[in-house]
Nucleic acid binder design. Sequence first.
DNA 1: ATTGCCCCATGAAAATCCTGCTGGTGGAAG
DNA 2: CTTCCACCAGCAGGATTTTCATGGGGCAAT
Lengths: 224, 224
Amino acid sequence: MKILLVEDEPKVSAFIRRGLEEEGFEVEVAYDGRFGRQLALGHAYDLIILDVILPHFSGLEVLAALRTQDQQTPVLLLTALGTTQDKLLGFGGGADDYLVKPFDFPELLARVRALLRRRGQQAKSAVLIFEDLTLDTAAKTVMRAGQPIRLTAREFGLLELLLRHAGRVLSRAELAADVWEDSFDAGSNVVDVYVNYLRNKVDKGFSQKLIHTVVGMGYVLRSE
Amino acid sequence: MKILLVEDEPKVSAFIRRGLEEEGFEVEVAYDGRFGRQLALGHAYDLIILDVILPHFSGLEVLAALRTQDQQTPVLLLTALGTTQDKLLGFGGGADDYLVKPFDFPELLARVRALLRRRGQQAKSAVLIFEDLTLDTAAKTVMRAGQPIRLTAREFGLLELLLRHAGRVLSRAELAADVWEDSFDAGSNVVDVYVNYLRNKVDKGFSQKLIHTVVGMGYVLRSE
DNA sequence: ATTGCCCCATGAAAATCCTGCTGGTGGAAG
DNA sequence: CTTCCACCAGCAGGATTTTCATGGGGCAAT
């Protein structure tokens, strides 16, 4: 993990740098806005820590430069105590987090970790969409025609599988194998029961049914 | 300032585009929901103007896709005269403003400006807001309906995470990973216990509960 | 020494899950 | 055209799993 630190006070920057390096991060330091901006734009950092008050360019200007280049690197701003809210308000660019000086190092570390983690998480959020039905696998939310639908864990698992294979007929055995993992009794009608639960929540009240039975074969998610 | 306009009627979109460009905004136009969604998710716009009625996906679905990805870009919805309020109200994720067609251009411009201004403010302050609950990440203060709430460090961390992902179901593992960092025992019920503490401090005494459990999945911060 | 926070463990409570059953439907066979 | 039969929808209540809520011990800061 590579972190860029832009901070002009040697004491502060040394303090932060040492702390972060002890935690296993790779840290580069810039001592003014101009150099900071150059590094920020020229390299791919995982996180940038910016002091607001700097020689040449302020941290806010560095941030602006970054964002106008469509760089989404997370930015943690260090604002001196007493920096007027106004100054920050006037600014469009958007940092990801703020920390007011003076601060404890553990506090900084926690935020750095949070930002790095958050960035990692966002990438894996996957939204499955079929017609007017949407399912977010990460957020565990389901919507039909913009209306939120509340599902239990089993129902969610079943719908997710149907969505992943929309248009394809899935046999009870296939559904059971995936949603019920191993604990599945072949003589059971659980699948039927849960398909019904789903129909009540997903299809009921809509003229356009999405869940269909294919007699003797299984179930499909399709329009028609 | 970059604005995305999703509107299928060529006359209307040309009209809005020209007007906004004369005011110095940079405007991109998508003519259907699918392309609109693609652009919205792929680029960092300062504002998105969405027509509700569109080919492929409705504006509401584009909005839903955006919000489930945790994108907080302000959204202005254009609704045709006669669209029932219900349809809009049922919407959890929330547009930031609505405008009923037909509308005057100065009206649109005023709202666009207001949204951009508001966002500037929100982004700067390290204050997370959901309904009548506010949390200041810098000052470490929490308020519900104007009343201050005292939280311990753990409780605060947990609530902050829930707020940052409001509307999204977070599993115990996700919560633990962020709040308890590494020292987390999978067989423990710490998360449950702390959610309980939070409920006592945040939800107790309010008819509108904000912390909800989704059995088998985790916890969410949401209204309803 | 006291206070407040953190976390474990437990039984109670709630929600979900699943079984077993009834009735219905549609297609095939007669 | 009628009868039969395999298959499916739908329900209800008990079994099972999951979550809530609470007491208390350990620990660190004051």
